[in-house]
Amino acid sequence: MQLLKYDVELRNLNKKFGSINAVDNLDLKIKQGEIFCLVGPNAAGKTTTIKLILGILKPEKGDSSIRVKGYDIPAEKNKLRKLMGYLPQRKALYDMLTARENIEFFAKAKGLSNSDAKINTSSMIKRLSLTEHQQKLAVHLSGGTQQRTALASAMVNNPQIAFLDEPTVGLDPVLRREFWEYFKQIARSQNTTILVTTHYLNEAEWADRVGVMRDGKLIAIETPQNLMEQTNQHNMENMFFELIKGETQ
């Protein structure tokens, strides 16, 4: 079996909504086991990029290609779905199911056997500190706990690759840090590749590499440290404004 160097390979990706270029000539490669963070302001094209990678949206016709885990997307998207975890921007939970029932439902919907679904659900509940909330209806959970439940539902199948769209939006700084520690932990222990988007610029420091997006374009790809060094800034937020200033000039 051929060993894949890159889990995600995007070439010449374009997507338009009307006259707006939501994604503009995007090229990107993400290595196996890497935490890659797409960072940028709202409407930069981060969510559209994830939706293109998952085959939810179709790219513009032309010389573009999307390969994820060696599969050609969108043609082979069903094969990818068995291996992946996906957390959409909205907290997608069934209000009238408990936290545990939600996680277990998605475990089974992702193809796990009944016994594996139970084992993995219990493990995710423990791992994301949901034990005391597991029997509460999702509608009665706080925003942060709902987000943890949604993350547990996305990752319950121990995916080889995860696409997490703004997983930390609306969370307090403590919980945001916990989420990133979890991402690091599974990337190191399970070699899970993670593509995560955020508009909290400073959060991107936690990633292995960062892609900075603006107006559908990827304006920089580097490690956070290198990006900050190249722009002579001490945090990611300042780095971003420095980059934009450079672009505008």
């Binding site: 909205r90 997608a92 193809g111």
Partner: peptide, 13 residues
């Protein structure tokens, strides 16, 4: 509206 349908459609079925 809640996004669960979109998630279900990402399952391998």
């Amino acid at each position: 509206r809640s996004g669960t349908l979109s998630l279900l459609l990402q399952c391998p079925y």
